[in-house]
Design a protein around this nucleic acid. Structure first.
Length: 851
RNA sequence: GCGCGCUUAGCUCAGUUGGUUAGAGCGUCUCGUUUACACCGAGAAGGUCAGGGGUUCGAAUCCCUUAGCGCGCACCA
């Protein structure tokens, strides 16, 4: 056999084989010979790799496992579809690109949105190309004709229609609340993107008048608006409802003390400062006591520096300010003590490890509970099977304790949120009204008292803003301006609304609306503006009514007030909001029969040939690390949009580790590059190393030694084939016409067949490792070591029939072996298969042979 | 705190609903070149399946418990 050398030279053949497979067209289920004959569908939608780098071992794991299933079911005669894609990976790509810009001395915050978008677009398209090549190298038999990118217009259209429907159904809402803010990347993150790390920080005990409280964040004290204690705490009961005076860095402070059950009396001193702008819990405390205490006072800006009324600390970064503020407190004698060894969890950005700054922002949220409820029902009803089984429990636990999901990101790389705000033009002056006042204005309140000078004169038209919700509700035309001491206001004042009967009541109200450290007495001067209120309406459109328009494309005029002030939300969606819809959107995008619902009702999903045929998909195979990010959200959104679960089975693979169980990372230098080792040892060897010993939900250990072991196996198989081919030449050389197998040899072939069926059973049950091992063991230690060895004397026998029978047996078992191994090691098996008698064309093994 | 796991050969891990002498890769030792293969063959050493208790005719496997390790979620300023 001159063409079969003693070693399998993968380098010479892999590329060629893949090209021929691809040219055959059989990766596309529509082109399979059996597809006309009502073959049952089998479908996997590929987790789209992030188009911001090249493939790593984790990708090789999913590529291998999904390819095993696809090839197996295709061989079994199903209409097998493996649908590939690529993910724009919003925030992750943005951070990768930010780093690149940083190296080049550039910065995205100084760039035009369109120019930056174009650069990132080009960057992802380049990466996408590279990854496609790499998936081919790994032997992935996916249908490239259906490949789709997450920013494809067909996908975006679907994402928009989902958002629109959810908005109308009340499942997405805009809210002003404290979000997880990364000061480095200047965007909000979802709760899942927060990584808590344990840190030791000083715990400062600060005197606030008669009380002492403990905090790790003295620098936020400028944003304090109250103090809180547990209502059951006997020590402090008498202070609840009281205003206490305290010495502050910037002068005297006055805070009200509220009782709130969220306070743990056992922690610190049992007294907490309430900083609603920069702490989630405090924001909630304020919400519960908003009648009694002032709301958020922002003193940290978006880049994590102090801002506002913070005196000499203005412009300092939080970490610096903390030390300086503590020093200052020490100086003026309000720092009681410091516990330097305080251990606590700090919220950080999972991408850059920056400490997150909680910050109030208006954002879009998804109301999760109704969606989770349906998902729980479906999972409990076993509409989805989980591998490993216990991940179902993990999934249910998460779904049962779900929180609303912030889907707004303040980056440019992503799908822009299709919401338009009817905003007042910037040149229009605005005046804020506390949200409780708004209905009074609408009902006829026509006077407002202001301590700060707004420089308004009679005849000015201003926009009226709900200062909590940051929404506008109308115009006010100023009709009179006066300046008076508060005590000189005649009470009750019917034009103001008539709510205050005594000076004390009025002063309390003033204090509530201004920072606590502002001293307000009867002698304080106030500006008094009389105005004529004009609500926004279609007849009266000027200015912007803050109506929110949600739709799949821009409209020229505000549907509410007819104004021309619509401005699109600059934010983009969390990537997972779009990838959470991946299974149905990718299938809907395929084929010519695509319908996206009726023209009048964009909310309807429509259908397509692929959607009808392949949805729900058979398997979702991905890593356990994105169970919550992706899998649960696909289930929820899939049920919401299609009424069906998006997949019948979930298989979760583990994380790849090196031989010392260390997580692979560039910084550790222990990364095994799948393409590099595939080049050196052959793709088949890498695939086997990935498959054997890899069980659902458990981490996978991959070392070069292991890969080398399976490279040896490929050579072994190669030599088995070489040996059998040698017999072929001998038999054929002797001019045999119709050789026959004896009963004994037939039995051996049947045995091999049974092994193949047993391996199939294991693939059916998602036990790929067992299947791979069984094939390995049978071929090496049964076929080669025992069957071939015992056949040797027969092959040398003088009896022709015995010789021929032994040859036929070996040929039969070889064929079985190639088939059982093909899903795992497609290249070497295909290559050998082509040498067998009767094999003419490529792709026979791949497509036509039944399992 | 709540939840989910793990502990099997020197190392890294398999072991499906409980069923003969517990397996694989790599490593170690001995021998071996014969119709393919030294990226090989024949053979060997190496495990009280974390400890204890229970159920059972029978337990690595099911139940309880102890110890050690890991992961996820939520948190106290």
């Amino acid at each position: 056999m001159p063409e079969l050398g003693p070693r399998y030279e993968h380098k010479e053949i892999e590329e060629d084989i893949y090209r021929k497979w691809e040219e055959s067209g059989y990766f596309n289920p529509d082109k399979l010979p059996r597809s006309k004959a009502k073959a049952k569908p089998f479908s996997i939608v590929m987790p789209p790799p992030n188009a911001n780098g090249s493939l790593h071992m984790g990708h090789a794991v999913f590529a291998t496992l999904q390819d095993i299933m696809t090839r197996y079911w295709r061989m079994k005669g199903k209409q097998a579809l493996w649908l590939p894609g690529a993910d724009h990976a919003g925030f992750e790509t943005q951070t990768v690109f930010d780093k690149k810009l940083d190296k080049e001395g550039r910065n995205r915050f100084a760039m035009e949105r369109e120019a930056l978008w174009q650069e990132i677009w080009d960057f992802t398209q380049t990466n996408k190309k590279v990854m496609e090549g790499q998936l081919r190298k790994l032997g992935a038999s996916c249908d490239w004709s259906r490949e789709i990118f997450t920013l494809d217009p067909r996908i975006i259209e679907g994402v928009y229609s989902t958002f629109e429907k959810m908005y109308k159904d009340g499942l997405v809402y805009r809210d002003y609340r404290v979000v997880n803010w990364c000061p480095k990347h200047r965007t909000a993150l979802s709760d899942l993107e927060v990584k808590y790390i344990e840190r030791v920080d000083p715990l400062y005990y600060i005197k606030y008048g008669p009380l002492t409280l403990a905090t790790v964040r003295p620098e936020t004290k400028f944003g304090d608006t109250a103090l809180a204690v547990n209502p059951k705490d006997k020590r402090y009961k008498k202070y609840i409802g009281q205003e206490i005076e305290a010495e502050g860095i910037l002068g005297k402070l006055k805070f009200r003390v509220v009782g709130d059950a969220a306070i743990d009396p056992k922690f610190g001193t049992g007294v907490v400062k309430v900083t609603p702008a920069h702490d989630t819990t405090d924001f909630e405390i304020w919400k519960r006591h908003e009648k009694e205490i002032p709301g958020p006072k922002i003193i940290i800006d978006e880049s994590g520096r102090l801002t506002g009324e913070v005196g000499e600390f203005k412009g300092l970064k939080v970490a610096e300010a903390r030390i300086k503020v503590a020093e200052k407190m020490q100086e003026i004698g309000i720092l009681e003590k410091v516990d330097a060894e305080y251990k606590h969890q700090v919220a950080t950005c999972y991408r850059c490890n920056s400490t997150l700054e909680p910050m109030p922002k208006p954002q879009w949220f998804v109301k999760m509970e109704p969606l989770a409820k349906e998902a729980i029902k479906a999972v409990e009803a076993k509409k989805i099977k989980f591998y490993p089984d216990n991940s179902k429990k993990v999934c249910l636990h998460w779904l049962r304790n779900i929180h609303d999901w912030n889907i707004s990101r303040q980056i440019i790389w992503g799908i822009r949120i299709p919401a338009w705000f009817c905003n007042p033009k910037n040149e229009v002056k605005r005046m804020g009204f506390y949200y409780k006042i708004v209905p009074q204005v609408l009902k006829g309140k026509a006077r407002t008292y202001r301590l700060n000078d707004h420089h308004l004169k009679v005849g000015d038209v201003i926009a009226c803003e709900d200062s909590q919700a940051k929404t506008f509700f109308g115009h006010a035309k100023i009709t009179a301006v006066a300046k008076k001491k508060i005590k000189d206001i005649v009470l009750p004042d019917p034009i103001h609304g008539g709510g205050y009967k005594t000076l004390d009541e009025l002063l309390t109200a003033f204090r509530r609306h201004y920072p606590p450290d502002r001293v307000i007495t009867g002698d304080t001067e106030t500006l008094i503006y009389d105005f004529q209120f004009i609500p926004f309406s279609k007849e009266n459109p000027s200015g912007g009514c803050n109506y929110i328009y949600v739709g799949n494309k821009a409209v020229a005029k505000c549907p509410n007030c007819n104004g021309n002030n619509l401005v699109q939300d600059p934010d983009v969606f969390d990537t997972w909001f779009s990838s959470g819809q991946w299974p149905y959107l990718t299938l809907l995008a395929q084929g010519k029969n695509i319908k996206h619902g009726t023209r009048n009702n964009k909310q309807e999903l429509g259908t397509s040939k692929d959607f009808e045929n392949f949805y729900p998909t058979d398997v979702m195979e991905t890593g356990y690390d994105i169970l919550f990010f992706w899998v649960t959200r696909m289930i929820m959104l899939g049920l919401y949009r299609t009424g069906k679960v998006p997949f019948k089975n979930v298989y979760l693979h583990g994380m790849v580790r090196d031989k010392d169980r260390q997580k692979m990372s560039k910084s550790k230098g222990n990364v095994v590059d799948p393409l590099g080792v595939a080049e050196e040892y052959g793709t088949d060897a890498v695939r086997m190393a990935i498959t054997v010993g890899n069980t659902a939900g458990n981490d996978i250990v991959i070392s070069e030694d292991k890969i080398r072991g399976y490279r040896n196996f490929a050579t072994k198989l190669w030599n088995i084939a070489r040996f059998v081919m040698m017999q072929k030449e001998k038999i054929e050389g002797a001019g045999v016409t119709a050789p026959k197998m004896n009963a004994h040899d037939k039995k051996a072939v049947e045995q091999a067949h049974k092994v193949r069926l047993s391996i199939g059973k294991k693939i059916d049950n998602f036990q790929f490792h067992l299947g791979a091992e069984e094939a390995y063991h049978y071929i090496w230690h049964t076929f080669a070591d025992k069957i071939i060895e015992s056949a040797k004397p027969k092959l040398m026998s003088e009896k022709r029939t015995e010789q021929e029978s032994a040859y036929l047996m070996l040929l039969g078992i070889l064929e079985e072996s190639l088939m059982m191994l093909h899903p795992f090691m497609p290249f070497v098996t295909e290559h050998i298969y082509q040498q067998l008698p009767g094999s003419a064309k490529y792709s026979e093994m791949l497509m036509i042979k039944k399992w």
